[in-house]
Write a protein that binds this DNA or RNA. Structure first.
Ligand SMILES: [Mn+2]
Ligand SMILES: [Mn+2]
Ligand SMILES: [Mn+2]
Ligand SMILES: [Mn+2]
Lengths: 227, 227
DNA sequence: TTCTTTTTTTAGTATTGTCTAAATTTTTTT
DNA sequence: AAAAAAATTTAGACAATACTAAAAAAAGAA
């Protein structure tokens, strides 16, 4: 039996690896103790302890001071947890009517419920959803994500370019509520009117109607598909 | 924060108290260490330790060798867990299509998910069900069970008497599957044809059609309403 | 009542996961 | 290249929960 704590660590390392894959080219250095401690809001020694345990159990490679990488088996577990997390989020939003900023903590608990059948039945009953309420792809039963969309950050788009919001670089509750206040949701069409070099902010058109200004930080976390 | 383990103990003690209330008249002696250990499939010393902790926290009264009773606050927690357990069971059977003998272990985990909103939304979305898939009453938000039915064990019914199955004295997976093999479910109408003094078994009519013989032990665990 | 059996508690140990403080190693700066 | 700063690991401790073996108390039998 895998403990809740181990599952959380594996998922965390997986997500840090995903993130790094998008940013850096060299993957020689593993995920650092510090990055994990930050993300899990825990202390570095706890992470060191856990990394030794994960490598003993064959779910991560780990050499002192070199950071860590998931093994195939570790990655499989992480993806399985992520699948459960996102499916439960869909359930909470679509069926129970929660808002997208209310589901994370609940899904954080539900993802650890273990049952051979439960996830698959949930998946089928929800109609095999492809994405969770935050636009993140839901892996299928075999761990494959069928996300063929090429997402581009609003940060990297040019004046006049338009796209539809389909993903977020940050899914924290505070950012989600911040987007609510702008009336920006998944599916919202965004067109760049003007970029300001001064502070990196952008003026955009929301759904071809309303003009608004988004900070550089917000823009960087909005991921769109452009036609 | 209340741990999963504590929640399980409180629920267990509550259910033993319920059961005892139906059997005995004197409630002076508390629920025994041994009864709890049996039901939780744990060792007596673990129970002794936990009882001391429960009484320290004000959820149970406990004096050495005298057994335990829940306090009001302890009972409130136990009922809350029971409510969650039974609502999740309804969800698993009605929405996801699980069979009644497959849901207990899953609900045993789901009952510990904590969220102010989740249970109430689940309850409303399920249409405020009164009973779980095993016929057990579901407490409302305030902890009250609205179960006005007078249940009578098949064991205590006379020849010729008839009733409708609405509850079970034992909800173990093995007993549930045993009932499946007899094609007996909640709502099944049962009429006593003949009682055998020899071994306490009864010959009954199922839904006014098929004759079958039930052992004394089965009969004792079938709870019916009689018109 | 006294002896025997059963139940319960105490004592001592193990496991898991966390933390702080101190030591060590790596990285960065001068 | 040496010194300073930052990151990481080790050491030692603690809380929660469970277990076995032994002691103590309660219940039942003779
Ligand atoms: Mn989690
Ligand atoms: Mn999500
Ligand atoms: Mn439980
Ligand atoms: Mn039930």
């Amino acid at each position: 039996m895998i403990s809740t704590s181990i599952e959380n660590y594996l998922k965390c390392i997986y997500q840090l690896e995903e993130q790094l894959a998008g940013e850096r080219t060299d993957s020689t250095k593993g995920i650092t103790t510090g990055a994990i401690a930050d993300r899990m809001e825990t202390q570095a020694p706890s992470v060191s302890d856990m990394l030794r345990k994960l490598s003993e159990r064959g779910w991560a490679t780990y050499e002192k001071y070199q950071g860590t990488h998931l093994t195939c088996e570790g990655r499989k577990i992480a993806i399985d947890i992520l699948r459960k997390h996102r499916l439960w989020e869909v359930f909470l939003v679509e069926k129970l009517g929660f808002k997208w900023d209310e589901v994370h903590n609940i899904a954080e608990q539900l993802e650890h419920v273990v049952s051979g059948d439960l996830v698959d039945r949930l998946d089928a009953w929800l109609g095999h959803p492809q994405f969770d309420p935050h636009g993140d792809p839901i892996p299928d039963k075999t761990g494959v994500m069928h996300d063929k969309r090429k997402k581009k950050s609003l940060h990297d788009m040019l004046s006049g370019e338009a796209g539809v919001l389909v993903g977020l670089g940050d899914t924290s509750d505070t950012f989600l509520r911040y987007l609510d206040s702008f009336e920006i949701a998944l599916g919202t069409r965004i067109t760049i009117v003007e970029r300001f070099q001064f502070d990196g902010s952008v003026q955009v058109l929301r759904n071809d109607k309303d003009k608004l200004t988004l900070s550089s930080q917000v823009a960087a976390n909005l991921l769109l598909i452009t036609p």
